[in-house]
Computed example of a mutant assay.
Amino acid sequence: MPWFEDYQVGQVRRFGRYEVTAQGVVDFARRYDPQPFHLSEEGGRAHPYFGGLTASGWHVTAMAMAMLVAEMPEGGDPAALGASGIDELRWLKPVKPGDLLSLETEVIDARLSEGRPGLGRLQVRTTVLRQGDEPVCRFTALVMVRTRPS
């Protein structure tokens, strides 16, 4: 389990595997983003940009979160305290059923908390990749991590 001290600015990791399915796209859309291009192939074809059934950007972000959590040790990571927010969320390209998603994370900043001893703050840029190399979504998470116990 990595503690704050185990992270280095510039550290890059690639991991995860999430296959996008038509049923998953439609199920998510019905519940959270019921726009026509997320609900059916026909609705997506009627859209001038998508050209077919397309996952909601919120769904893509949720799939990224599922891959991040799957990378944690079973039962959770005692050093990880969650995130205090997301900056610069961008949906770069449409995600379609049949796409295989993975993640690349890069630590872009690491600082000890000035007001809370035992706590570090990381800025981690996460890029969702389609078929292993094409960026489709990018965001920067503000992650809180415990420092190594003395």
Score class of each variant (00 low, 15 high):
4 F>L: 07
88 E>C: 10
25 V>F: 02
67 M>L: 11
83 A>Y: 13
70 A>K: 12
3 W>E: 10
105 T>R: 08
93 K>L: 08
42 E>R: 15
74 E>R: 15
111 R>D: 04
36 P>A: 09
37 F>S: 00
63 M>G: 05
6 D>E: 14
18 Y>M: 12
49 Y>N: 04
74 E>S: 12
87 D>G: 14
100 L>C: 05
40 S>K: 08
40 S>F: 14
8 Q>M: 09
65 M>S: 14
35 Q>K: 12
98 G>Q: 12
110 A>R: 10
98 G>Y: 12
12 V>A: 14
31 R>V: 07
98 G>L: 10
9 V>G: 03
12 V>M: 14
116 R>Y: 01
136 V>Q: 11
130 R>W: 04
32 Y>W: 13
88 E>T: 06
37 F>Q: 03
66 A>I: 11
19 E>M: 10
75 G>N: 04
86 I>P: 02
82 G>Y: 10
132 G>P: 01
134 E>L: 15
17 R>T: 02
114 E>Y: 10
72 M>R: 01
9 V>I: 12
30 R>K: 09
16 G>C: 07
113 S>A: 04
80 A>S: 09
47 H>V: 06
135 P>K: 15
109 D>A: 13
23 Q>N: 06
3 W>K: 02
103 L>A: 09
138 R>A: 09
120 G>W: 15
60 V>W: 04
82 G>M: 10
75 G>P: 00
21 T>C: 06
116 R>T: 05
146 R>A: 05
37 F>L: 03
67 M>S: 01
76 G>L: 12
146 R>F: 02
86 I>H: 09
8 Q>G: 04
100 L>E: 02
47 H>M: 05
14 R>W: 07
148 R>Q: 07
55 A>L: 08
32 Y>M: 02
143 V>T: 10
116 R>M: 04
149 P>G: 01
8 Q>K: 14
67 M>V: 11
128 V>E: 03
52 G>D: 06
86 I>A: 07
55 A>E: 02
63 M>W: 15
7 Y>R: 07
25 V>W: 04
100 L>F: 08
139 F>D: 03
55 A>I: 12
95 V>N: 01
14 R>Q: 08
67 M>P: 03
7 Y>H: 06
91 W>N: 03
148 R>P: 13
34 P>C: 04
150 S>M: 09
89 L>G: 01
149 P>K: 06
62 A>Q: 05
62 A>R: 02
26 V>H: 00
78 P>E: 02
76 G>E: 09
66 A>K: 15
117 P>S: 13
11 Q>V: 11
131 Q>K: 14
19 E>W: 09
5 E>N: 14
104 E>C: 03
31 R>Q: 13
23 Q>E: 12
51 G>M: 09
55 A>R: 01
127 T>W: 12
9 V>Y: 11
126 T>F: 03
122 L>I: 10
59 H>N: 07
51 G>K: 14
14 R>M: 05
131 Q>I: 04
